[in-house]
Structure formats: structure tokens, C-alpha cells
């Protein structure tokens, strides 16, 4: 058992996500930075679908009641286990009674904590991921608070076989310099004026304080739509189209652009002008409020190559761990 001593700003239990229910309006949830979630799990010998703690800006403090192994991945976060520094991206042994104290991320926004065998909470619709907007999954469907008690799974890797595992630096993203988000343009980019369509990919967009698991609202020039008579079924605002499904990562334009993330509404009538590719959504999840991002147009083929490249990095990390 793990006792939560301090919950942090926004800490939730997440796994790979909740799939197969998008059509009824249920978003997948799951780790915002999937890459770091997977690295954290690999370090302690877990499968990728084990649930980790996603800690946002500020970490959780935890007391461990059982022996085990933990690892931190993603945004660098100072952490101490009974006063001893816990390095990032390394599997560390934890003994019953020890307490982990964490601080604020020094760059990036989200740090993942894995424990051997994963956090065990009941699956809801096939996933342990927390979806706080409707209060399901994870621990009571909410962010963690002091006093919560978490149970870990069974049959974790034997500590001696995983303690000391590290992820090679060259396979980890450079969070500080990763502000380019490759984006497949469409489906509704035709609604933008030529000038606005160019601006979308030319300017730096600033992440606002309204940037969470639902979406990232960005600040920048006002984009303009081509004037038209709104078709039947579309709302009256020029940003409205006849309802469409929103891809995860899609950029919609209520006024300021919002990149929809893993807890977002699944469809509606805002023009979605592009979609940030899966490979780069982990990077977006690490951009801090007030940092900037740029959209770089790519083809679907380039997006698939980028996905392969992320999988290659994960495979290289797993190979390095298996030694």
C-alpha cells in the first residue's frame, strides 16, 4: 500500500487510455505524455499498460508500506527518498516505511511515477485512467489528496532484476528545445483565409494558463475565417461547421486556438484546422504555461514515420534496460 502524504497540484492515476467509447462521447484519457509513461513503466519492469501517477508541475509525497521499486520519467522533478536524491529515469529500490518527497518540475510540466506491478485501481470501461470531468477511473475519479491510500498490483518484477535500470539520454526528448509540433493540416482549414492559414504555421503560439488534460489554449494572432453563408446544421458563428468528430490533438478555433488533449470533448461544431500528430503530443503535454509552440505542417506519411521513430526510441530504451 502507498499512502498519499501530499497530493500535489494535480496528480492522477493514468494508463494507456480508455478505448472504444469515443463515439458515445467518452474520450480516452490516459497519460498525456505517453512516451514518459511508457519509459517509467519499462524502467521498473512493468508492461506499458500498468497505471502510473501523472504529477503536474508539483509532485506528490508518498509513504510506502511495502518493499518495491519506483521510477520517475518525463519532466525533471527534484525528489528525495528518506533524504536521498532520487534521479530521473532510474529504477530505485523502496523499502517499507520509506517516504518519497518531491518538489516542482524544473522544466516541463508532467512527471510520471511508476511502481513495480503498477497502481491497482478497478478498471472502468477497460482502463484505470482517471477522467476527472465525469469522475471515473483512477482513485475515486479525482486528483489525489493527502490521506488517500493506493494499492499496487501483484507479480511485479523482482527488485534485484530491475533496480538500477536507466534510460539512455540519447533516447529521451530534449524538453527545453521541443517546441515544434508537427501537424497534419485539415479537415476544416479551408475555412481560414489564405493569410490566416499561413499565419497558423508561421507564428509562435504562447501556451496560456488554461492548458490542462482537456486542451491547451494558445495565445497569438487572431485567425480569420472566409466569409460565407453558414450551411444548414452549422451554428451561426463563422467558426462553426456542421458537427464533426474531433481527433485527439486537433486544433479548434472557438476564438483562440485550443489543441484538444486526452480528456477532451469528442465532437462538435468548431472548425478543426489541423491535428498535432501523436508523436508530438507527448511534447505538447510537457510545454509549460507561457512557453511557446509552433505548428509545422507534415503529411500523414511523415506523421507515421515520426510515430515509428518514437517506437524506435522506446525499443532502444527497453534494449538498454535488458542489457
Amino acid at each position: 500500500m502507498i499512502e498519499v502524504v501530499k497530493g500535489g497540484v494535480s496528480t492522477t492515476i493514468q494508463d494507456l487510455g480508455r478505448f472504444g467509447h469515443y463515439h458515445i462521447g467518452m474520450p480516452p484519457s490516459g497519460a498525456m505524455d505517453l512516451f514518459s509513461h511508457k519509459v517509467a513503466n519499462a524502467l521498473v519492469g512493468n508492461a506499458s499498460d500498468a497505471a502510473t501517477l501523472e504529477m503536474t508541475y508539483d509532485g506528490a509525497d508518498l509513504r510506502f508500506e511495502e518493499n518495491g521499486v519506483i521510477a520517475l520519467a518525463g519532466a525533471p522533478m527534484p525528489a528525495e527518498l528518506d533524504g536521498e536524491d532520487v534521479p530521473m529515469h532510474e529504477a530505485v529500490r523502496v523499502e517499507a516505511g520509506q517516504e518519497l518527497e518531491t518538489g516542482f518540475t524544473t522544466e516541463g510540466a508532467r512527471t510520471y511515477l511508476s511502481v513495480s506491478a503498477g497502481i491497482d485501481v478497478p478498471e472502468v470501461m477497460g482502463s484505470r485512467s482517471t477522467y476527472t470531468l465525469v469522475g471515473i477511473g483512477g482513485h475515486e475519479g479525482r486528483t489525489l489528496q493527502a490521506g488517500d491510500e493506493l494499492v499496487t498490483g501483484e507479480n511485479g518484477a523482482a527488485p534485484d532484476t530491475v533496480v538500477g535500470n536507466t534510460a539512455p539520454e540519447e533516447n529521451l526528448p530534449d524538453l527545453e528545445n521541443s517546441n515544434v509540433l508537427r501537424t497534419v493540416i485539415g479537415l476544416c482549414d479551408y475555412r481560414l483565409t489564405d493569410e490566416s492559414r499561413e499565419q497558423l504555421c508561421d507564428v509562435a503560439w504562447k501556451v496560456t494558463p488554461e492548458a490542462d488534460r482537456v486542451g491547451y489554449r494558445l495565445e497569438g494572432p487572431e485567425l480569420e475565417f472566409v466569409e460565407r453563408e453558414q450551411p444548414f446544421g452549422a451554428g451561426t458563428d463563422s467558426s462553426n461547421v456542421v458537427d464533426v468528430g474531433y481527433p485527439i490533438g486537433s486544433i479548434q478555433l472557438p476564438q483562440k486556438p485550443i489543441v484538444l488533449m486526452r480528456d477532451a470533448v469528442t465532437g462538435g461544431g468548431y472548425a478543426t484546422i489541423g491535428t498535432v500528430i501523436g508523436a508530438d503530443r507527448s511534447l505538447l503535454a510537457q510545454r509549460r504555461t507561457h512557453e511557446t509552440v509552433r505548428f509545422e505542417p507534415v503529411t500523414v506519411e511523415e506523421a507515421l514515420d515520426a510515430r515509428q521513430s518514437v517506437q524506435d526510441d522506446l525499443a532502444a530504451i527497453r534494449t538498454a534496460i535488458e542489457r
Partner: peptide
């Protein structure tokens, strides 16, 4: 300090 509708 407020960020992401959370307050510290």
C-alpha cells in the same frame, strides 16, 4: 498561483 484551474 493558478494554473490549469488548479490553485497552489
Amino acid at each position: 498561483i493558478g494554473v490549469m484551474k488548479n490553485f497552489h
